[in-house]
Write a protein that binds this DNA or RNA. Structure first.
Length: 605
RNA sequence: GGUUCGGUAGCUCAGUUGGAUUAGAGCAACGCCCUUCUAAGGCGUGGGUCAAGGGUUCGAAUCCCUUCCGAAUCACCA
């Protein structure tokens, strides 16, 4: 039973029968009737006026009559200007709910062997600092996007490229060597990623002091301020040492490599904890230290083919000016690779490992230009999916006083935030007396689910492309358009269903089509059925937020129903059965929808 | 300066192939509703020149142009 699809097809037949013209289903504008008018679905007839050669009202009237006559689900209609409001029969709605109830994974399209293989890269951290709120947004979006695409019949490979080498890592290493006194995660009690992050900050602090000192000295010697600063930045012994370390690293110096391995290992242990807390995972992790050499090879290949060119100093460039872009450096004069080189290398390894049809990069919008260039380069280098690679470009999380900057300490730490959310959830539950007779384990689990639900929903309900605001002063809400609001509704439904089950009432398969149902209930079924198209739309637009907003709207509507109608106390057994099935399916769709977002639902809260 | 993306209520955000005299939610404010299936809920009140101006048409927050404001980017950083 697919009411909307059926009526759309019937409209096509109606036009054919009435006016003798073929129209495509895309031309049929069938939308939800606005709530101030009577009806469920509304056909906009303006597009058909040229075919009917009649006034809007008349055309609508004719189509309405034809539908009432020939389309069983259309029970009645009314016409307002060019709008044909269709009233769908209760029996059709009940039949729709019956079908929906039979489908345990309504709205989800499973993949098969032949489905397209999509790879999603997300997270992609640097190993010199712990994850912050911006990374959290990335991780949650990547995870949700993978789920959404999976629910649209794609085979999905989740991947992570760890930026584990480069000058930034050397800075942390050097600072640890110089000031660390052998400190380890064990000795300090710090998470490994936090420990390393502290040394990254330390490096920056001492480096700045050095630069300041040298600059002043140079200025005293009569060097112009701008030039003095530039020279100081280059000459700073700390920076020189860091660069030396990077060169040694590339030369496989055993000592540097050993230090690098040890410190990265600390970071990974820390990251894995954070990933686990966030509930995200990867099918395949790539490390830049493995891929950057591949990139060099690929670039040399391109150089031989004449795609790129070499400058006098030996550096290799791509000239993209004919595409309206700049010239782009691919290899430095000393032969070391840059960011772009690494992404090319990673692409090569990925394609070797997986025969992917599509590649999606979940990376912040600050890198739009980079991916524009990468797409062109990969295409020219012969990657089939290069041209159509998707840069899932999401907006920054901004704080009231601007952007987050690790070095300036203005970051919202991921671990700390998760912890705070969970403890807030716990406190709220206690204050509201929701825990009842739960065991300590159950309490912890509820607090975890609700706290994370609040955080995840907060980040995922906003259109991914937009920058969003996070105010640490105001804690994330638990009321209104929030994760806990949706979870709460779910828990209430589950409670009702438990009570029904205790009374021996099993949610039955059989629904009677002649059940008398209210407008509110019809609307709920209609809304429920929309889940399928919402999932599809979210997949087409790469937009998890559509699912979040869908769940919110469904919950708003269900809560009104819950408030106005009795379920367990309904005396008419037929109605009671219907309402139980309706509620069970609202819960089911909420669980599926929120599940796509990576948000768990509590049985009680 | 070039390019890209944004600007909707005091605040945070919906509004997706252009559709209905009255542009929606939540938060915050102020009221009302628990001896009744979980009140993390429901109902109500106030709050808007959809940045500004022009254009396209039966019809524009939505499409086009101009201007203003904001962000990102245009690195031998990743």
């Amino acid at each position: 039973m697919r009411i909307e699809e059926n009526i759309t097809a019937s409209v096509v037949r109606a036009i054919k029968a009435l006016y003798g013209q073929e129209v495509s289903e895309n031309q049929v504008q069938l939308q939800k009737t606005k709530k101030e008018f009577e009806g469920h679905l509304t056909l906009v007839v303006f597009p058909f006026l040229k075919i009917s050669h009649r006034k809007p009202e008349e055309t609508a009237q004719q189509i309405g009559e034809w539908l009432k006559e020939n389309e069983t689900s259309v029970q009645d209609f009314n016409v307002i200007k060019g709008f044909l409001n269709l009233i769908v029969s209760s029996a059709s709605w009940v039949a729709l709910l019956r079908d929906l109830n039979a489908d345990e994974e309504y709205g989800i399209v499973r993949s098969s062997e032949k489905s397209p293989l999509v790879m999603i890269e997300y997270s992609s951290p640097n190993t010199n600092k712990p994850l912050h709120l911006g990374h959290v947004r990335n991780n949650l979006l990547g995870w949700a996007l993978a789920n959404v695409l999976g629910a649209n019949g794609n085979r999905v490979v989740k991947t992570n490229i760890v930026n584990d080498r480069g000058i930034h890592i050397c800075k942390s290493m050097l600072a640890w060597q110089k000031y660390g006194k052998g400190e380890t995660p064990e000795s300090s009690g710090k998470k490994g990623d936090h420990l390393i992050g502290d040394y990254y900050v330390a490096f920056d602090k001492y480096y700045r002091e050095e630069v300041k000192e040298i600059t002043e000295k140079l200025i005293a010697q009569g060097v112009a301020p701008d030039e003095a600063k530039a020279r100081a930045e280059q000459e700073s012994p700390l920076m020189v040492e860091a660069h030396d370390m990077l060169v040694k690293w590339e030369q496989n110096d055993p000592e540097v490599r050993a230090l690098w391995s040890k410190m990265n290992e600390w970071v990974y242990v820390g990251f894995n904890e954070t990933y686990k807390a966030l509930g995200v995972s990867f099918d395949k992790i790539y490390y830049e230290s493995d891929t950057y050499l591949e990139g060099k090879e690929k670039v040399m290949e391109g150089l031989e083919k004449g795609l790129f060119y070499r400058r006098e100093d030996g550096s290799v460039w791509a000239d993209l000016t004919r595409k309206g872009l700049d010239e782009k450096l691919l290899l430095r004069a000393d032969g070391t690779s840059v960011y772009m080189t690494q992404d090319i290398g990673t692409a090569k390894l990925r394609f070797r490992d997986f025969p992917i049809n599509k590649m999606i990069y979940v990376v912040g919008n600050e890198q739009n230009y980079h991916f524009q260039v990468l797409s062109i380069l990969l295409d020219e280098l012969g990657f089939e999916w290069g041209k159509d690679l998707v840069h899932f470009s999401y907006g920054m999380v901004e704080l009231p006083n601007g952007k987050m900057k690790s070095r300036e300490g203005t970051v919202v730490d991921a671990d700390q935030l998760v912890e705070e959310m969970i403890s807030t959830a716990r406190r709220t539950s206690e204050e509201l007396g929701k825990f009842g007779d739960m065991s300590e384990d159950e309490k912890n689990e509820v607090a975890r689910i609700v706290g994370l639900g609040a955080l995840k929903y907060f980040l995922l309900k906003v259109d991914a492309r937009k920058n969003m605001m996070f105010n640490p002063e105001e804690s994330i809400d638990f009321n209104g358009n929030t994760g806990p609001f949706i979870q709460y509704t779910y828990a209430r439904i589950r409670s009702v269903l438990r009570k029904a089950a205790d009374a021996g009432f099993v949610v039955p398969e059989a629904l009677l089509l002649d059940t008398e149902i209210s407008l509110k209930e019809e609307d709920l079924i209609q809304h429920l059925a929309d889940f399928r198209s919402t999932v599809r739309q979210a997949g087409e637009d790469y937009s998890p937020s559509l699912i979040a907003n869908y769940c919110y709207d469904l919950v708003k509507e269900y809560n009104q129903f819950y408030h106005d109608f009795s379920i367990l106390r309904e005396e008419d057994q037929q109605k009671k059965r219907f309402r139980l099935v309706l509620s069970a399916n609202v819960a089911k769709v909420l669980r599926l929808g929120m599940g796509l977002l990576g948000i768990e639902m509590p049985e009680r809260m």
